Each structure stands twice: as C-alpha cells, then as structure tokens.
Amino acid sequence: MIVTTLKPLLAKNRSWALQRRQRNPDYFKKFLHQQKPHSLWIGCSDSRVPAEVLTGSHPGELFVHRNIANMVLEEDDNLLSVLQYALFFLGVTRIVLSGHYGCGGVEAALNLPGSGLEDQDSALARRIKRLRDDIQSGLATETSPEARLDRLVEANVRAQFARLVTSEPVRQIWQSGQPLEVFGCVYDLRSGHLKELISQSAQEPCL
C-alpha cells in the first residue's frame, strides 16, 4: 500500500513524464541505454539548490553528488567514488563545485561552540566540526551577520575547491593530459544567480 503522503509526488511525476512525452515522444528513449553527462556537479544537499533546476539542465547532462555544505573529504568514499566514476567511466570534462549563500551547514559551523552538536560524536557533528576547521580563518571577520555568513560560504567553497583539485582522481586526469576544467561557484538564493569564484584547468606545478 502506498503511503498517502507519497501520492502528490507520484502525481507530479506522472504529469511531468506525460508533458515530456507530449513534447517529444522519444524523450526517455534517448537516455535509456547510456548516459553522457558533460559535467559533474558537487553541491550542497539543501533542498533550495537542485542542480538541474538552477542550471536549466535536462536528464543526462549532469552527474550529481550532493552532501551537507558541499564538502570534499579524502576519507569520504561516497564522494571519491562519484568523482572517479565521473572522470574515468563517464568522461566528464567539467566539475562544478557549488556552495550557496544562506548555507545551514556553514551557519552550524559558525555557531558550533555551545550548540548541541559540540559535544556529540555523530556523523553530522563530525562533519560540522571539520567544516569549522576549514573556515577557521574567516571566523574572526568583523562585519554584519549576513555579510559574515556570505564570506564564510565563499571561504568554504575555496577550501573544498583546494581539496578537490589535489584529489587523486583529478590529478590523474590532468597528468594524463586529458582536458578537465574545475570551477568553484556560489549560488545566490536571493537572486537565483550562480557566480564563479575560482577555476583551474591543469595541475599547478610543485614549488
């Protein structure tokens, strides 16, 4: 028996599928046997920032990984397996790492001292504590609360970007000479606009 609360989602799904078939009878057949996305999107799990919606993408265009505060951690097998699959099996040539203003994960990291998470040893608490370490240098910024959170969101994107471009899968692709562009972006909930903060298209030489 289908739970009642699922019915609205199923109804919207049927309506969406019908609209797509009416516009193009072969819409679903196109991606039935393969996928060839041009980009990997690494974003936040926040329900207000769905990658396909805010980029106007169609099925088959984006390979997506989302987690709290769009973090890139070397011990995160989930993210690393997505990254490896996207690069070596799907052949994506672009990675977009996107944070967003108003990020609840960054705000939780900012307010960690004295919060309920501070003394916990849970998956969420460990991630937020790691996130606080990543944005530590920006915590002392003297500005308005909203502007401060915005700067910390950007600091988090830059911290995760630095970890992403030195990850083993990305370094292997660049060392092989294959084209790959990596972008660090932030999405503005207030305007709906996505903006670029940082980018890299080749491995930087060791000093």
Rank of each mutant, 00 (worst) to 15 (best):
W41T: 03
W41H: 05
W41V: 01
I42P: 06
I42F: 06
I42S: 11
I42V: 14
C44I: 08
S45K: 10
D46P: 06
S47W: 04
R48D: 11
R48S: 06
V49T: 15
P50Y: 12
P50T: 01
P50C: 11
V53C: 08
V53D: 11
L54K: 10
L54R: 08
G56W: 09
G56L: 08
H58W: 14
G60H: 11
L62R: 08
L62M: 09
F63T: 07
V64L: 10
V64F: 12
N67V: 13
I68R: 14
I68D: 02
A69E: 07
A69Q: 11
A69M: 13
M71N: 06
M71I: 02
V72I: 14
L73K: 11
E74L: 12
E74H: 11
E75T: 15
E75F: 00
E75W: 02
E75Q: 15
D77K: 08
D77L: 12
D77F: 13
D77N: 11
N78P: 05
N78Y: 08
N78A: 14
N78I: 07
L79D: 03
L79M: 14
L79P: 10
L80E: 10
S81R: 03
V82M: 10
V82L: 04
V82P: 01
L83Y: 12
L83R: 03
L83I: 12
Q84D: 13
Y85V: 10
F88M: 12
F88Y: 02
F89D: 15
F89M: 13
F89N: 15
F89E: 15
L90T: 02
G91K: 01
G91N: 07
G91C: 12
V92Q: 05
R94D: 14
R94W: 00
I95A: 04
V96F: 01
L97K: 09
L97A: 07
L97Q: 05
S98R: 06
S98K: 09
S98I: 13
H100V: 10
Y101M: 10
Y101R: 14
G102S: 11
G104H: 09
G105D: 06
G105V: 09
G105A: 07
V106I: 15
A109D: 00
L110V: 08
N111M: 05
P113R: 13
G114W: 02
G114Y: 07
S115A: 13
S115H: 08
G116H: 02
L117S: 07
L117P: 02
S122F: 02
A123Y: 10
A123G: 03
A123N: 09
L124C: 00
A125Q: 05
A125P: 08
A125Y: 00
R126P: 00
R127C: 05
K129Q: 14
R130M: 11
L131M: 14
L131A: 03
L131K: 13
L131C: 10
R132E: 04
R132L: 03
D133W: 00
D134G: 04
D134I: 04
I135Q: 10
I135T: 08
Q136Y: 06
Q136N: 14
Q136T: 06
G138D: 07
A140C: 09
T141Q: 07
E142P: 00
E142M: 00
T143N: 05
S144Y: 01
E146D: 07
E146C: 03
E146K: 12
A147S: 10
L149N: 03
D150S: 04
D150T: 06
R151S: 14
L152I: 07
L152P: 01
E154I: 05
E154Y: 08
A155W: 06
N156L: 11
A159C: 05
Q160I: 08
Q160K: 11
F161P: 09
R163N: 07
